[in-house]
Computed example of a mutant assay.
Amino acid sequence: MEPVHPGVGVTRRLPLLAVAAALLTGCAVVPQEAAPPVPCDPTPAAAVVPGDGVYLGANLDWGSETLAEYAAAAGHAPAVAVSFTGFPLGPDDGRNLDGAVDQLVAQGGLMLLTLEPHDGLAAVTDDAAADLAARLDGYNRRGVPVVVRFAHEMNGSWYAWGQQPAEYVAAFRRVAAAVHAEAPGSATMWAPNYGGGYPFAGGRYEAVAGSGDAAVLDTDGDGGVTAADDPYAPYWPGDDAVDWVGMSLYHWGSAHPWGENEVPEPGKFVAQLTGEYVGLAGDDRGLPDFHGTYGVQHGKPVAVPETAALYAPGSGGADELAVKQAWWRQVHDPALAQRLPRLAMVNWFEWDKDEPEIGGRVDWTAASGADTRAAYRADLPAWGRWADAVPSCD
């Protein structure tokens, strides 16, 4: 989720991602009738990247909508279905993942699996990683590729795995080694939080001044962790461990406090991915070029695992279609192939839910509402790739 910018004086809350963990951990997946397993030789994960165009997917409220229902609303079966789970996996986690995979077997597409180690990085053991890899290999052999987004937003201060660069890198590499060795049809994704507002002071897991973690995060060597330090590089696990890179980008509005419905300024989406963003909330031009550094220089496909634009019914400001359409037209801009050549995945956050930031409901959806669905479908880009473009078995 988009962070609070420096000087606002409000610490960043547990973002939508934490609430969205209910996707699999708090809400039972609504299964379709399970298809009989058809073992196959999985497509190597390196080949599960669009040869051209961009995979378009969705973050679904699995407790109230199936993949088939979303596909009917959007007019296409999504190439990517986003799921969240605690890690290490408990019995309920495994059952819910199995239910999601049943839907993907029937509908097609890949799973973007976000692993959340809420008990801390010490719980990410070799055994937990091996158990995960064995499960993923089974999913791959059912024809479902998986991209594992491990401990996302690790540069934030709001998660139990946050701002612990050395331990995070070791845990990521542990999971990646198991996945690469035992589930060759699966891949890994490294996904920090957008760096505007770094180092997100005041969070529960903020690196303590004077600690070893703070020393690693002090990339400019001035004796403290500040907005001048690189918000991404200390957490990089290495080219051999990372297959995809990603960053969630939401339009919350133009300036804090959030809650008024505001049309996003032109060019915001690309500017945030390239470290060139200047808006009413602040000037982020000092941030690294995420797409250029980790996509182009490191040669990785780039994902936007989650995106949407805030519309709060009854909160005043612009109308729903004006807000959402302005954002999805940036996200689906025909020129993105030239501006962001490494972009390979974009997933809309298809949830309607209460948000603590505004003390009320936010409708993030694009395809669910009658007032936006037709416009969303009409604006889907020609470069969008859907479930039928995702290779699953050789």
Rank of each mutant, 00 (worst) to 15 (best):
W383R: 11
A77E: 10
E355V: 05
P50E: 03
G108E: 05
V263C: 02
A214T: 12
Y55G: 04
A100G: 11
T365I: 03
F87S: 06
R329K: 13
A207E: 05
D289E: 07
S186D: 04
P305K: 08
V4M: 07
W258I: 04
P44I: 08
G314E: 07
F269S: 02
A214K: 08
D98Q: 13
D98T: 12
V8C: 07
P257W: 07
G86D: 15
A106Q: 09
A183D: 10
H251T: 10
P381Y: 06
G286H: 15
P391L: 00
A207T: 11
G75Y: 00
D394G: 08
S368G: 06
Q164V: 06
T219C: 06
A46T: 14
F269T: 05
T11C: 02
K300M: 11
Q163T: 10
M247N: 12
D119I: 00
P305F: 07
D371M: 00
T372W: 05
E116C: 09
R329I: 00
F269E: 02
Y250V: 02
A58I: 01
H118P: 05
A72H: 09
L16Y: 00
L321S: 14
L115T: 14
V8H: 13
D379N: 10
V346W: 06
G53D: 08
A45D: 07
D131E: 15
E355M: 01
W351D: 00
E167D: 14
A201F: 03
D119P: 05
A68T: 08
E262W: 04
Y205G: 04
P234Y: 02
T307G: 02
A374D: 15
A389Q: 11
A389D: 15
Y55T: 06
A241W: 11
A79W: 03
